[in-house]
Design a protein around this nucleic acid. Structure first.
Lengths: 333, 333
DNA sequence: CTGAAAGCGCTTACAG
DNA sequence: CTGAAAGCGCTTACAG
């Protein structure tokens, strides 16, 4: 079919070993190197990566398994990972699980069949709990969700502190009945709920946390139900941007004004959060650093498989916008 | 290192050929099949895909090269492609070019080295013009940008008609000085500009088209400059969602109201377009169908390399929202 | 149905 | 610096 290293060798009048050395920067005389390079050009030769990987036993491949690349947090992280990978001459296999444990299992098997060099993985709680059973024989770095185990290197945000920041900010702006809406599949949602709860307790306020599936429609429905019930919150903390979008939709349908009728603060500084209503107050994660740190941990682990497990905890930034400006002043009676 | 087919054969007391047949659904007696399956379980064997691909000469791999997976149009298309691919037992290699011809060239070479079964590609105009020089020996289906050549199968939107729809809609809503802002690297931008221009001419209106790099910041800067100049448009047609975002930012900075001071209509029905201001009027592309059609063209081409080149042209839908509701009525003098 | 053997396209000690 | 040869882990005619 396509031209192989043998064809190039014949064309250049050298052995295949010499061709291989030219391609791999081995020691070759200038004269032969020139002849081989010409032959490569004439034949349009392209090395067969499957053969190279098989023979060299190096896949030069990093696996990256996330819940959904459409989540801008993962989009940004994946770009950082890819950049670092290509810098190191490696490729990246990207997989979306939609938080589905069956898909996670399928992709973990794929990673083994591809003989990946290492894996960067944002698992569901369920899969995280039984990760050891997969018998992975390559290093794994967890991102976004590292709790509670200490079996793998991990890069995570201080989710409790970040959620608490949002609560503290809302309290300072005069909100008191602050509800919390969290995703129910990841450890991230659980940790943010803990930070929310702790901050509320520290202020002597009554927490009101709800959990939903990580989809905008679920958040929208939940908020509609919530506002229809008796105990309306005057502000809501939301644990990710998908849910945040659903909340904004619900607020629109109800004809409520932000921040006058409802304060709103959430996670992830996506481009659109600046453009919606008065702008949404959000926690910005250091996505570039998260991707960089994950790759750094992976390479260090490859260098030294025996080094103790390490967890890198990064801190988010609170980007304050109009959505938390304060409640509408009640008109004098 | 890891367990190979030989280890499984030894463990099961059969030949490697039999193990291979069990894995590949070849003809094997029930008794041996059972022994092999047990041995696979005990050893935790996972086939080596590099070896399988090399020997079988089937990579079972589809290449997908797009400008930026963060562009929700490509995100949606890629999900459709991946679903179809996994249905056919194939994997997908996804590459982002950022509309950079050098990256496109690099990835085209990679596709050859991976010996992909076929490629789905959204090229820049520059690369499209010299695609033949790469000597690709696998079928290519172009998406999003197929003009002008007829050398490859392609799935495209009727961009001229879609842009004309937006112009017609704006005219019906009373806008007259309708500007157009287009991306300058893809054929898509060029075609939408043609549709815009034709529709304006048909209405006897003066077109005012501007081209910018496909980034939000470029669109923002361009619109700021535009509104500062003498001839202000009363509405703008924008050729993609990245630019649309930049335009919204500029409008906010200028303190203009949509649709009262400026009508706004663009491309791609992303979730956030519903949430910004009064909602943005956009063209929705049939993304699922585009992905499906591309995969169908690819498989048909693999079945029959000799069939004539085919181009599938799909039509967009105009989703009308508040951003084109009409100009503010001038207050009576 | 089953096994022995060849070979996919490379890389890499091993000699020279 | 260079080449002949072995072998990575599979699949697939070829016999039986």
């Amino acid at each position: 079919m396509s031209v192989s290293i043998k064809d190039v060798a014949r064309e250049a009048g050298v052995s295949v070993a010499t061709v291989s050395r030219v391609l791999g920067n081995g020691p070759v005389s200038e004269a032969l190197r020139k002849r081989v390079e010409d032959a490569v050009r004439r034949t349009g030769y392209r090395p067969n990566l499957s053969a190279r990987r098989l023979r060299s036993q190096h896949s030069q491949t990093i696996g990256l398994i996330v819940s959904d690349i459409r989540n801008p947090f993962f989009t940004a992280v994946s770009r950082a990972v890819e950049d670092a990978a290509y810098h190191a001459g490696m490729r990246v296999i990207l997989c979306n699980t939609d938080e589905n444990p069956e898909r996670e299992a399928m992709y973990l098997r794929l990673m083994q069949e591809e003989r990946v060099t290492g894996l960067i993985f944002a698992p569901t709680r369920e899969t995280l709990g039984k990760l050891e059973r997969f018998g992975l024989d390559f290093p794994v770095v967890l991102i976004d969700r590292g709790e509670p185990a200490g079996l793998h290197d991990a890069v995570i945000l201080d989710n409790r502190q970040a959620a608490a920041m949002l609560v503290d900010h809302l309290v300072e702006r005069g909100y008191r009945r602050i509800g919390g809406l969290f995703g129910n599949t990841s450890t991230t949602g659980a940790e943010r709920q803990e930070g929310y709860r702790a901050a509320m307790a520290a202020r002597g306020l009554e927490p009101a946390a709800r959990f939903v599936a990580p989809r905008a429609e679920a958040a929208e429905a939940e908020l509609l139900a919530w506002m229809a019930a008796g105990e309306r919150p005057d502000a809501v903390v939301v644990s990710n941007s998908l849910l945040l979008m659903g909340v904004v939709k619900a607020v629109r349908r109800l004809g409520l004004s932000i921040p006058g009728d409802l304060g709103l603060a959430g996670f992830d500084n996506e481009p659109w959060t600046e453009l919606v209503g008065p702008g949404l107050t959000v926690i910005e994660q250091p996505v570039q650093e998260i991707g960089d740190a994950a790759m750094a941990l992976l390479f260090e682990r490859l260098d030294n498989p025996e080094r103790p497990v390490r967890k890198v905890v990064l801190t988010g930034t609170c980007v304050v916008r109009g959505s938390t400006r304060g409640l509408r002043q009640p008109s004098p009676a």
